[in-house]
Structure formats: structure tokens, C-alpha cells
């Protein structure tokens, strides 16, 4: 009995020491976690999470200062990926940070635009071109749909246009697995 206890105790001590040594010896330098989190975030740079961009939000998550459910553009799938990455529980999107919307791009009505440049200053990814008193336009391919340009516009000429599915972006659907109930069971 006593021997057994001693053996187990010795085992525990040895293994504990080995683990402790490994933790010190093989410590991971730097913080690749922020990069990994940033890679999962949609890079909309919209700030809906309460941070001034995706990278700051990633840093906050890594530090434990922000939760993983504050990113509406990333949506449910984004939360799931973050949860997978961080080994956390999946939770629904936090309502105070917004709701998940279909993807959209900003569209400037060129008839109304007065060229005030306020939207250009607001755009986090330089997707709006134009100069003072010149009509502006959105580079659709660069627009992340963050909506940050919409409120500053004094003439309300910016609208968000949902991205419509085209022949090029159309996706084959998941094949429906037809498990037909036995005829007798059809009610």
C-alpha cells in the first residue's frame, strides 16, 4: 500500500517536473495568436466591435479584453472559427454590436455628390476616389462594406447596395441527401 502511494507520488513529481521544464524550455516567443485571430476576422475594418479596426479587435481578443462575438460582418461562421481557434464555446452574436447582414458595397450617387471628401476621410481602406469639389466614386472591388462612409455624407448620396449573386459568383448547392421515409410512414 505504502509502496504504491510512494510510486504514484514519485511519478507525479517526475512528470510534473518534466512538464514544468518543457513549459519554460519550449516557450513560444512572440504572439502569433493575434495574427491568427486577425486572419479569421473579415477585415471589414468597420469598427462595429468597438475597436478601431480588425487588428485592434484581434489584439483585444488575444488579451482577453474582448469577447469573440462582437463582429457582425464575420457573423456566426466567424464566431465559430474564433471559437475553434481559441478553444472557446460558440455563442450568438452580441446584439449591441450589430446584426449580421448580407454583404454589400457602398454606392455613391454621382448626381448628388458634392465632392466634400468627408467619405474619403472616413473610408478605412481607401476605396473611395475623388478630390475636393470633384465627384467621388467607390472602387467596388476594394470596398469592404463597412458603412463608415455613410453617416459622414452631408447629402446622403451614399447607399449600401447588397452584392447580388451573378453567374460568376453563383455556387453549386449542397446536394440534398434524399432519405425518403418509408411509404408507410408518410403522414
Amino acid at each position: 500500500m505504502l509502496t504504491a502511494i510512494l510510486v504514484m507520488a514519485l511519478g507525479a513529481v517526475v512528470l510534473g517536473a518534466a512538464l514544468g521544464y518543457a513549459a519554460v524550455r519550449f516557450r513560444v516567443q512572440g504572439d502569433p495568436l493575434v495574427e491568427k485571430i486577425d486572419a479569421v476576422l473579415p477585415q471589414t475594418q468597420c469598427g462595429q466591435c468597438g475597436f478601431p479596426g480588425c487588428k485592434p479587435y484581434a489584439q483585444a481578443i488575444a488579451k482577453g479584453e474582448a469577447d469573440i462575438n462582437q463582429c457582425p460582418p464575420g457573423g456566426e461562421e466567424g464566431i465559430r472559427k474564433l471559437a475553434d481557434l481559441l478553444g472557446r464555446e460558440v455563442k450568438p452574436l452580441s446584439a449591441e454590436h450589430g446584426v449580421e447582414k448580407p454583404k454589400a458595397v457602398a454606392f455613391i450617387d454621382e448626381q448628388i455628390c458634392i465632392g466634400c471628401t468627408l467619405c474619403i476621410q472616413a473610408c478605412p481602406v481607401d476605396a473611395i476616389v475623388g478630390a475636393a469639389k470633384q465627384m467621388h466614386t467607390v472602387i467596388a472591388a476594394q470596398c469592404t462594406g463597412c458603412e463608415l462612409c455613410v453617416p459622414p455624407c452631408p447629402v446622403n448620396c451614399i447607399s449600401m447596395q447588397p452584392i447580388v449573386e451573378t453567374v460568376e459568383t453563383w455556387k453549386w448547392k449542397y446536394p440534398i441527401i434524399e432519405i425518403k421515409p418509408a411509404p408507410a410512414r408518410i403522414s
Binding site: 477585415q43 471589414t44 480588425c54 487588428k55 476594394q142 459568383t169 453563383w170
Partner: peptide, 22 residues
Amino acid sequence: KSEIWAREAEKEAADKAREHYE
């Protein structure tokens, strides 16, 4: 295939956005 294409496109767009932002 189309799902992978879509994801790659999304990823590319995100990478570009990150670049522009930085």
C-alpha cells in the same frame, strides 16, 4: 469546388482589405 473558390475569393478580399487598411 465552388465553395472553395468562394472562400479563396473571400480570403483574398480580406487580405487586400488588411493591406489597404495598414
